[in-house]
Design a protein around this nucleic acid. Structure first.
Lengths: 128, 128
DNA sequence: CTAAATGCAAACTATTTGCAACGAT
DNA sequence: ATCGTTGCAAATAGTTTGCATTTAG
């Protein structure tokens, strides 16, 4: 566990906001200004592979890295913004249904965020 | 609704296998050999924006397009392979918990697929 | 001393964009 | 005639890779 790996782990796990690799890079540079992008990607992959951080893929935007504490995500179908939400845990129910073990699950709920709903109300064009 | 849009819709909705844009392109070329990639991306985006097809983002691999019929996905954490699975519908429960409407949800379950489990059993290196 | 981690830049992959040409109202 | 759609190629974004160098045990 190198200083970079440790620091990246800290950054991801102490953030509330599912950071992109780019954002992790910025944060890390505050502590180690000489660090390079590749190191960030290497370590994010390593941490993810080891199950120590979460990776969330959202269509249309870069992958995000998140603490492993259980929580779910609301995704705005217009602007792509991610919001944390805490819902009933499905682990037991899923295990029962699948009849087997699994690592983790990822639940995303697509909606329209208040800001975008507002905008659409004002400008009723662009509707589907 | 152009002939391309229609055909792309057909391809995605009649496939069982969450195709990548690349795969949709190949399929479409069988019918319209002169079509270009950009057209495929344009139309996939359009169909997705209209809610007529699903888009599934999987970390590490290109986005996949899927029929809208309700189903969930198992994702292998080693090889990334996607497998369809049909689980209890969460819509009502989620609506209740969120206290509001939403478009759709996407549930991914991370596991290790039988092939990868097999491989790991044979070669117990590479474990986390 | 050795193996693993890093920095850099180039490579790569997936996707989007700009723009001219086309095609269907 | 007009406006949306297409094809092409170039651009972009995100991420990975190769390799020489550094670092840590």
């Amino acid at each position: 566990m190198t200083k970079y790996e440790k620091q990246i782990y800290e950054i991801v796990n102490s953030s509330q906001s599912h950071l992109t690799a780019e954002q992790v890079f910025s944060e890390l540079k505050k502590v180690y200004p000489a660090v390079s992008q590749a190191t960030v990607y290497n370590n994010l992959n390593k941490l993810y592979g080891a199950g120590r951080i979460r990776r969330v893929s959202v269509e249309g935007s870069p992958d995000r890295y998140d603490r492993t504490v259980k929580h779910d995500h609301l995704v705005c179908r217009r602007c792509g913004r991610l919001t944390d939400v805490c819902l009933e845990d499905l682990t037991d129910s899923l295990k029962r249904q699948l009849g087997g073990e699994f690592f983790s699950y990822d639940l995303k709920i697509f909606y329209i965020c208040p800001e975008c709903r507002e905008k659409e109300a004002q400008n009723p064009a662009r509707q589907q």
